[in-house]
Simulated scan of single mutants.
Amino acid sequence: MNEGIKLHYGVDGNDFASAGEASSDTKRILKKLGVSKEVIRKVSIAMYEGEINMVIHAGGGVADVDITPERIDIILSDKGPGIADVELAMQEGYSTAPDNIRNIGFGAGIGLPNMKKYSDSMEIVTEVGAGTTIYMSVFIV
């Protein structure tokens, strides 16, 4: 892999069944590139959690992935309601998901904490009423 590979995915905000397609496709590509299983695992979990958050909270969004020999950068952007209290949202178990989402097994309040846990760096840029962009990186070397 001499040059970077750029991937772009739309995340449908109304479809739990398709949530995870971006992370699955990225995983497949990383496997073909010979990236280590541990790096693939971290990227897959962090991306999947972000996709689910976009479906639950933001009505969808986009996922951009930049793969270089040194790292994988993931940018998840949405035009949802934004995160009113990032510090609170980062606490494991805290969730603003409605009961109907919790009743189908989502919204347990582990999405953002898992995204931080499985990425080597993470930054959240959010504005209430305008949306959220999350920047994550997973280092290969």
Rank of each mutant, 00 (worst) to 15 (best):
N2Q: 14
I5F: 00
I5L: 09
K6A: 12
L7D: 14
H8F: 14
D12W: 08
G13Y: 00
G13I: 00
G13N: 04
N14D: 10
N14L: 12
A17S: 15
A19Q: 01
G20T: 05
G20W: 01
A22G: 04
S23N: 12
K27C: 12
K27A: 15
R28P: 07
R28I: 09
I29K: 06
I29M: 14
I29E: 07
L30D: 01
L30I: 03
L30M: 00
L30T: 04
K31P: 12
K31W: 11
K31M: 11
L33W: 01
L33D: 01
L33N: 04
S36N: 09
E38F: 13
E38W: 10
E38S: 15
V39A: 13
V39K: 11
V39G: 11
V39Y: 10
I40H: 08
I40T: 02
I40N: 02
K42A: 12
V43S: 03
I45M: 11
M47F: 07
E49L: 00
E49N: 06
G50T: 14
G50N: 10
I52T: 12
I52G: 07
M54R: 09
H57C: 10
H57S: 06
A58Q: 06
G59W: 00
G59H: 05
G60N: 00
G61R: 04
G61F: 03
G61S: 02
V62K: 12
D64K: 13
E70D: 15
I72A: 02
I72W: 07
I74E: 02
I75Y: 10
I75W: 10
L76Q: 07
S77K: 14
D78Q: 01
K79W: 06
K79S: 11
K79A: 12
K79I: 04
G82Q: 00
G82I: 03
G82H: 05
I83Q: 01
I83F: 03
A84R: 15
A84I: 09
D85Q: 11
D85V: 04
V86C: 04
V86P: 03
L88C: 06
A89N: 03
A89L: 02
M90D: 08
Q91R: 15
E92Q: 09
E92L: 04
Y94S: 05
S95L: 05
S95M: 01
A97W: 09
P98L: 13
N100E: 10
N103G: 05
N103Q: 11
I104Y: 06
I104F: 07
A108V: 10
G109T: 03
G111E: 00
G111T: 01
G111K: 02
L112S: 07
L112W: 09
N114K: 07
M115E: 02
K117H: 04
K117T: 13
D120M: 07
D120Q: 06
S121W: 08
E123K: 07
I124M: 00
I124C: 01
V125Y: 07
V125I: 13
T126G: 11
T126A: 03
E127Q: 12
E127S: 11
V128P: 04
V128K: 03
G129H: 07
A130D: 09
A130C: 05
T132L: 00
T133M: 12
T133S: 13
T133K: 15
T133V: 15
T133Y: 10
I134T: 12
Y135S: 05
M136K: 08
S137P: 08
V138T: 11
V138L: 10
I140H: 04
V141Q: 09
V141N: 13
V141P: 12
V141D: 14
